[in-house]
């Protein structure tokens, strides 16, 4: 469970990227966050695992306060949260399996990770994660040799390898073509359903949000302007979030063709 309580973020330049956000996300939910570029979507995701510090208010993950957590506590919180990035953020020169194993760094003794002597169980988890996204056959290839879609699945596998309770995905399909985008989104949806992992996804395209989301959070200029069922999203709500009517650019499949 994630609880935002009057959460506010101020970036070093003085910019208020999140303003007084209060909401609760229950376990197992599949939540999509939408908003214009610069609305604060990434910021909202990043305060959950403490990559961006809060200025005011609080964010609790499973009852644990993120703000001001000691370094060790913060690592504990992060180890239960998988994160997926728009640009994959893989180490290109490393093998796929090593990239996935990075997800287990917080769970193995330090000396083992230092000399690269991974426990069998952890390697097994990594391989299973790769199987779940269907690319275990690439396990020993260099990450840079994979296609974009495959690389993003490695990113997902790395998050899965953490055996997380929560997955944060920051525009996971923004670097991918429409067909691959749908496959990756289906993967994420399946993982949410099968494993019951709470999932928060930032999306740019509204049709993707409609197709896969349950709950939708709309941000505008750092403020919460919509929070509700995806089925309730109509032209008015859209106007509230984007400040204009829907255009083909807001739809993946329309924009792709």
């Amino acid at each position: 469970m994630i609880e935002f309580d009057r959460a506010t973020v101020i970036y070093p330049g003085g910019l208020k990227a999140l303003k007084d956000i209060s909401l609760t996300i229950e376990d197992g939910e599949f939540v999509v966050v939408v908003g214009l570029s610069g609305a604060g979507k990434s910021t909202m995701l990043r305060v959950i695992n403490g990559l961006v510090p809060l200025a005011e208010g609080s964010v609790k993950v499973n009852g644990q306060e993120v703000r001001g957590a000691a370094a060790g506590d913060l690592r504990d919180i992060r180890s239960d949260i998988g994160m997926i990035f728009q640009t994959f953020n893989l180490v290109n020169r490393s093998t796929v399996i090593n990239n996935v194993l990075a997800g287990r760094l917080s769970m193995v003794p330090r000396w083992r990770s230092t000399i690269g002597l991974w426990p069998k169980a952890d390697v097994e988890v990594a391989l299973q994660s790769l199987e779940r996204v269907g690319i275990v056959d690439k396990a020993y290839e260099r990450a840079s040799n994979l296609s974009g879609g495959q690389q993003q699945r490695v990113g997902i596998a790395r998050a899965l390898a953490q055996e997380p309770e929560l997955i944060l995905a920051d525009e996971p399909v923004a670097s991918l073509d429409p067909v691959t985008s749908h496959m990756v989104m289906r993967d994420l949806q399946r993982i949410n359903r099968e494993l019951g992992i709470t999932t928060l996804i930032n999306l740019h395209f509204l049709d993707l949000a409609r197709a896969y989301g349950q709950r939708l959070i709309g941000l505008r200029d750092g403020e919460l302007v919509f929070d509700g069922d995806i089925a309730d999203v109509d032209e008015d709500v859209f106007r509230g979030i984007y400040g204009r009517a829907i255009t083909p650019e807001d739809l993946l499949d329309a924009a792709g063709t």
Partner: peptide, 8 residues
Amino acid sequence: KSPPRPQA
């Protein structure tokens, strides 16, 4: 569904 595991 998944392809066979490769040998390290």
